[in-house]
């Protein structure tokens, strides 16, 4: 019954382990498992340093997704799950992580993770997830001071971008670059709703717009959508983006343009911010004697 479509939305799943660190040298090993509605990440940290992680698509069963993500993160590390002192579950499926010691909301975890990823100067974090979009303000320790979240509507979420990748027949990881291969910046797609935006894009293609121009118009619409979220919460420097869309330069550059501010850059993987935050909360809890 599920309609077969070319899977342009499908992004690559992967795992990573530190080439230098050895788990036997760590005093406290903690983990964060972020079960999102679209993707899941498991992050293992030793004494607050990133040791290993995985990023994969969430399956229909949250506990199984959590186990798979953790197994894959630990693969080839020579370490087993029982060496982890404290596991924090976060994300939409946070209460369904069978081996977690505690569940913490992803808003708190993303702020903490962004603080680790981008440094203590971060005050505003935009997390663009698969099925939601969060604007978060935090202090120099990564503690949340205000937040706002949109999970009612797909506009401004990764899922909305996946729908467009499918419609245009463009692989999702190429969308960002292609959105700049245009003669001039087009007006943004005017419909906020993804369903109506899709119809509008189809119409533009029929009118003879090149594909890249349509992509640019949608990236701009998405940027505008999240801009209004940040505007409502109030912007304070420095600004950083986490989540899957942070990897889409087409949206990121246009958000920067609207906000008239540059987002902090990182070499690290923006999709693991939530799980990193979870692992760091785990460490704090162990140190406070609550683990």
């Amino acid at each position: 019954m599920e309609k077969k479509e070319s899977e342009y939305w499908r992004w690559k799943e992967y795992n990573w382990k530190s080439p230098e660190l050895n788990w036997e040298d760590f005093e406290i090993i903690t983990a964060g498992v972020d079960i999102g509605s679209v993707s899941s990440q498991a992050v293992v940290m030793g004494d607050g340093e990133l040791f290993a992680y995985s990023n994969m698509r969430t399956g229909s069963d949250s506990p199984e997704s959590a186990r798979n993500a953790m197994d894959w993160a630990l693969k080839d590390t020579g370490m087993s799950l029982d060496k982890i002192r404290y596991v924090v579950g976060t994300g939409y499926g946070r209460v369904n992580v069978p081996f977690a010691n505690k569940a913490i909301t992803e808003i708190a975890c993303h702020a903490r993770g962004a603080n680790w990823m981008y440094g203590p100067s971060v005050r505003t974090v935009l997390d663009m997830g698969g099925q939601d979009c969060k604007a978060i303000r935090c202090d120099e320790r990564g503690k949340v001071t205000a937040f706002l979240m949109n999970d009612k509507c797909a506009a401004g979420t990764g899922r909305g971008m996946e729908v467009f990748a499918d419609l245009l027949g463009v692989h999702i990881q190429d969308i960002g670059e292609l959105s700049f291969e245009i003669d001039e910046e087009p007006p943004e797609v005017s419909s906020t709703c993804v369903v109506f935006a899709k119809a509008e894009a189809s119409q533009l293609l029929r009118e003879g717009w090149p594909k890249n121009k349509v992509i640019a118009a949608y990236c701009a619409a998405m940027a505008h959508r999240v801009f209004t979220l940040i505007e409502r919460l109030g912007m304070e420097k420095e600004f950083a983006i986490t989540g899957g869309i942070a990897k889409n330069v087409g949206v990121v550059k246009r958000i920067e343009r609207e906000l008239k501010i540059e987002a902090l850059k990182t070499e690290k993987d923006t999709q693991i911010a939530g799980a990193v935050g979870g692992a760091l909360f785990g460490k704090t809890l162990v140190e406070k004697g609550k683990g």
Partner: peptide, 8 residues
């Protein structure tokens, strides 16, 4: 609520 999320 959303059409896109309903499809998922």
């Amino acid at each position: 609520y959303c059409t896109v999320f309903t499809a998922t």
